[in-house]
Design a protein around this nucleic acid. Structure first.
Lengths: 215, 215
DNA sequence: GTCTATATTCTGATAGAC
DNA sequence: GTCTATCAGAATATAGAC
């Protein structure tokens, strides 16, 4: 029984939350400069003055959204990864699966983050050090142990990370161009992303067993 | 013998070219809305009025830059790929090598393109159809022939493209976060990108020989 | 808390002197 | 062709009534 929900998802929220949700949506989609305070007010279905009443300024509101987006983006990775002592191959499966689910729900986040990072590298620096580094260390340590044990071929941690993240995230940020070039509709796209949950770990595994015969 | 070049690379250019170069730099780095006409004038070392004198409006100037950027981005791929009848593995080496060289010279282009594509999908649609599709067709045809011949394992063209482009481009757009997470300096970064010229084709090859045993 | 009206600042574009 | 000064409109923020 489908009730009329979608008409305005903001209906049940407090005014403050309505503004925040409207701002989150627009800022994340378009970035700071493209979004006008009037757009946010219109999207939230409230008056322009209320934005300043609740959040003082456009800039403060944006900072709030940005911080929450960073947190969301980080949490997308960090769960379930650090503590457990399962083998790296299996761990990859979980990471990729979780992150593809996450990206399906929040497809605009990566580009938002990458743009912010370029124009504002310092803001996130501290967060990376405290939040991402531990995960990285854990994963990279496990990688290097496996290399030392001879289970996998030697690989630079940078390459490993770039491959893992690139294979997982890139289809989402390159989606418009990829879908047009390969001629794939939205349904097929999501089906392919589901496939990638299984395939990426397989591929990473293949990469980790490829002898690097440079020159 | 190093002459004092870098102080102002715009020095020898005509006023019109100075403005265009300044606009290219800023628009490509930050996007349309973030850049103010006054920023461009300052960067070019000229007066604000001259921007309108030469280019009529900010929008016209941006469109000019955008088109040139698209062309550059496309040309980065299209050369050398279509006509020749060399095997796909070898072709991949050339594509990846050329494109990494290209991205090293123009590291801001991918994010610029991806942002434009999201906010303005229609503009590029036609260009993709006329310019990228032929290359795609050629490469994908070759891929599917190899699959039919049993030379490589079956793979969705979408996955193949997403992997190829993702592995090549992503390190450049994710550079700020990757470098911080893995703790890699600029020199090392470029060294790693040189390595990837050889490694990515190797990895793609490994992927193309991985049996997809789903479920 | 919410609104309308208005003040203030920013930004793109032009007029007119040189 | 180049500059200074300025305008017109857009965009953010606030005052003040309800």
């Amino acid at each position: 029984m489908k009730k009329k929900i979608a008409e305005d998802a903001l209906k049940d929220l407090s005014t403050e939350e309505k503004i925040k949700e409207a701002a989150r949506k627009l800022f994340t989609q378009k970035g700071y400069a493209q979004v006008k305070t009037r757009d946010i007010a219109a999207e939230a279905g409230i008056n322009l003055a209320l934005l300043n009443y609740y959040f003082r300024s456009k800039e403060k509101l944006f900072e709030l959204i940005m911080m929450e987006n960073f947190k969301k983006f980080m949490d997308g990775i960090s769960v379930k990864v650090v503590d457990e002592k399962i083998p790296i191959a299996e761990k990859l499966q979980r990471i990729v699966e979780d992150y593809i689910d996450f990206l399906t729900k929040h497809p605009d986040l990566p580009l938002f983050i990458l743009n912010e990072l370029r124009s504002n590298p310092s803001i996130i620096a501290a967060r990376i050090d405290t939040e991402v580094r531990p995960i990285r260390s854990h994963l990279i340590n496990q990688l290097q142990e496996a290399i030392k044990a001879g289970t996998i071929e030697p690989i630079e941690p940078f390459h490993f990370m770039a491959n893992l993240v690139g294979l997982t995230i890139f289809p989402f940020i390159g989606r418009p161009i990829l879908q047009r070039v390969i001629n794939v509709n939205d349904e097929k796209f999501h089906q392919l992303m589901q496939e990638r949950k299984k395939l990426i770990p397989l591929w990473i595994n293949a990469i980790l067993h490829t002898k690097k015969n440079l020159n």
